[in-house]
């Protein structure tokens, strides 16, 4: 059996407010295999972003890891020094966010910002790095990459900026890409293009992806395996097909029933959407049961 690329074990994150620590993540465990696209879904505040920030070593006060391990290629990231973590970020593990403007420097051309990745992480000279930056823009299918490299971020549309983010994130061929709601701010057709780009580039390069979204459709169309988060817990995890086809946890069932499905009205007439509160008797008990399906054994035998 291949070893997981990322193995999060019993991760606990707490927020310290005054002299009390509030649990935010309650023993979250999941693995991502090399090259696998893994999705985290769940409602707002369920802990998706905190999970990804913990993996990146970017938790800020008052949040801190209160227990567990985050093994990346077998090494516990929680034991690394700040400096070692910085080296890992952008190099072996990269991240793209919902709003590229917050991650891009408004005062520097996008070509320079991508080139910087090659200079900092791969020790390239500026001339070569600038050329690689243009190649990187071409690889994320930005038209006229030569000219676009000289653009400042505000001169680009949201979809183009998100492509620049992807180019920067993939510049050093990371093993793991963390994408936190990367397309939420985009129009549907642009979203579809950006999703396809992430999917194709990562498949080509064998990059594993931790994909975070509240949109079940986005997760279904990008990920092989999905974890459902609720209130700081991973309440269900399965192969995408199985999770959507045969949801086991009542929260997952409620979530899927609450979703208007394209084409359903044509087939069945207008059905009332499931009101999750009417099928869930006690929300406080939701995290008491967890359905984590075992991974299919290597070789594809079910």
């Amino acid at each position: 059996m291949t070893a997981p690329l990322l193995d999060v074990r019993g991760l606990k994150v707490a927020a310290r407010l005054g002299d009390r620590a509030h649990p935010i993540l309650k023993e979250v465990s999941f693995q991502i295999m090399p090259g696998e696209a893994y999705g985290l879904v769940g409602e707002s505040g369920s802990g998706k972003s905190v999970t990804s920030l913990a993996v990146m070593g970017l938790l800020k006060k008052p949040l801190r890891v209160a227990g567990g391990e985050i093994l990346f290629k077998g090494q516990d990231l929680l034991q690394l020094s700040k400096r070692e973590m910085r080296r890992l970020r952008g190099n072996r593990v990269a991240m793209i966010f919902q709003e590229p403007m917050t991650a891009l420097n408004p005062l520097s051309t996008v070509g320079r910002q991508i080139a910087e990745m090659f200079v900092l992480h791969q020790g390239k000279g500026w001339d070569e790095a600038q050329r690689l930056a243009v190649d990187a823009l071409a690889s994320v299918r930005v038209p006229n990459p030569d000219r676009r490299a000289r653009n400042f971020p505000h001169q680009m549309s949201g979809g183009l900026r998100q492509r620049v983010m992807i180019a920067m994130a993939l510049a050093c061929n990371p093993d793991l890409l963390i994408a936190d709601e990367p397309t939420t701010a985009l129009d549907v057709t642009v979203q579809a293009e950006v999703l396809r780009l992430i999917k194709e580039l990562c498949a080509e390069r064998g990059t594993a992806v931790l994909f975070i979204s509240h949109d079940l459709g986005v997760i279904a169309s990008t990920c092989q395996r999905v974890g459902v988060m609720y209130s700081g817990c991973l309440v269900e995890e399965n192969e995408t097909q199985a999770l959507f086809g045969d949801p086991r946890h009542e929260y997952t069932r409620g979530l899927l029933g609450a979703l208007p499905r394209l084409g359903s009205r044509s087939q069945h007439g207008r059905q009332r959407l499931v009101d999750i509160d009417s099928i869930i008797s006690d929300r406080s008990k939701l995290t008491e049961t967890r359905f984590i399906a075992p991974r299919a054994a290597e070789g594809g035998q079910p």
Binding site: V188, T189, Q191, A192, L195, D215, L216, G217, V218, I219, A220, S221, T240, Q241, F244, G245, L256, L259, R261, L262, G263
Partner: peptide, 12 residues
């Protein structure tokens, strides 16, 4: 527009 909607049933 319709083809761009990420829909779980279609994706799967």
């Amino acid at each position: 527009l319709i083809a761009a909607i990420p829909d779980p049933d279609v994706a799967l």
